[in-house]
């Protein structure tokens, strides 16, 4: 009996392992090789040298991270109170579903809605004019890019925070209130720290895609905001320079891995300090 069970485990491992090798390890390895394979030079680090010595590319990297950070902060600022309010509602499952519902509408359709809303004669501009201000350029601005990106990422931030808030033992905030803490103190000292895992998941699920929202930079940002994602897309699908596109990809992966490693390290340190 035990040997059959072992054979089962081996079969699972085999299937899953093969899949991981073929569709996770292989593509990323190929990306790395492609980034080193400079046309006409064979294997070389030329692409990396070009990337790190070129001002525009470095500026773009910083810009890209800065915008992703802004998007994350905006969505967190809206989502955290929203998640908190949701947990207090009577039919909270239903309201949560309503928050998730927009994710079932394809993000391109939502982006498309904003083209209509923010356009030159769009609804928003007409309301601004009706209030007595002049017509504004709304579409193709950095603000529009931030707005649409935050809008699209919002549900992905609410969901993990909501789950983390529901996991909190309701007796803890009750105890804190009994012991004389104001509701703000309870929020700051009890609820916020306990919901940290959800906030972290939310930040990760919003920050990373925000680096690569190239269709929004195209359709809403009017190519003014150029992110790493836009640059990769450009190199792969427009100028067909896969080699340099891969280089940017690898840099992006390394930067991400670094930020993740840094955040977890800091967490461990904090824990040690508390001890």
């Amino acid at each position: 009996m035990n040997s059959t069970k072992k054979r089962f485990t081996e079969a699972y491992l085999g299937v899953y392992g093969l899949w991981l090798l073929a569709f996770v390890v292989a593509p990323l390895l190929l990306l790395l090789i492609q980034s080193l394979n400079v046309p006409g030079q064979g294997l070389s680090l030329a692409n990396y040298r070009d990337f790190f010595t070129s001002g525009p590319y470095l500026a773009m990297t910083v810009n890209s991270i800065w915008y992703a950070f802004l998007i994350t902060v905006i969505t967190l600022g809206i989502s955290y109170p929203l998640a908190l309010c949701l947990t207090k509602l009577k039919h909270r499952q239903f309201w949560l579903l309503l928050v998730i519902l927009p994710t079932w509408i394809n993000l391109l359709l939502k982006t498309y809605a904003f083209i209509g809303l923010l356009g030159k004669d769009g609804l928003l501009n007409q309301s601004i004019e009706a209030m007595g201000f002049g017509s504004q350029q709304l579409l193709f601005t950095n603000g529009a890019f931030l707005l649409v990106a935050a809008y699209i990422e919002l549900p992905f931030m609410v969901l993990p925070i909501y789950n983390a808030l529901l996991d909190i033992d309701p007796l803890l905030p009750a105890a804190s209130r009994d012991l004389g803490a104001s509701s703000f103190q309870t929020l700051k000292k009890i609820i916020w720290p306990l919901s940290m895992p959800g906030v972290k998941t939310g930040v990760q699920t919003v920050f990373i895609p925000s680096l690569s929202l190239f269709m929004i930079t195209r359709l809403i940002g009017g190519n003014k905001v150029i992110t790493l994602g836009t640059a990769i897309e450009e190199h792969f699908l427009v100028t067909q320079n896969w080699s340099f596109g891969s280089t940017i990809g690898v840099v992006l992966i390394i930067a991400m891995a670094l930020t993740m490693a840094l955040t977890t390290d800091r967490k461990k340190k904090k824990r040690r300090q508390r001890k």
Binding site: G17, P27, L30, L31, F236, W242, G249, L252
Partner: peptide
Amino acid sequence: TLLGLNNVLLVSPDVIIGAAFLILMTA
């Protein structure tokens, strides 16, 4: 290792997945 490899695609930006798969499929 398995868990780590599993999470790689989850945390990769779409553009990276797209580019890597484009290279893989062409290869």
